[in-house]
Amino acid sequence: MPKEVVVDALGEACPVPLIKTQKAMKTLEIGDVLILKIDHSCAMKNVPEWARKVGHNVELEEIGDCEWEVIIEKVVA
């Protein structure tokens, strides 16, 4: 059964959000979804970029002024 994990990286500067994402993704199974909360303007670019390069499904949602949720579905192991 796919699960959904929320990682809160609000207030964290680069590269912390990406490292947290990389670590969390390792613990997930294929089909699981990770929701990363960020408010660092560089992380909204480099986290989706990394996840897309690896091959996951990525959605970026702006939820407020300078606040985003990166939604990553694990596709490759």
Partner: peptide, 11 residues
């Protein structure tokens, strides 16, 4: 880009 806010120190 309507993305401004003051980002406080967290820890």
């Amino acid at each position: 880009a309507f993305e401004f806010k003051f980002k406080k120190i967290k820890a």
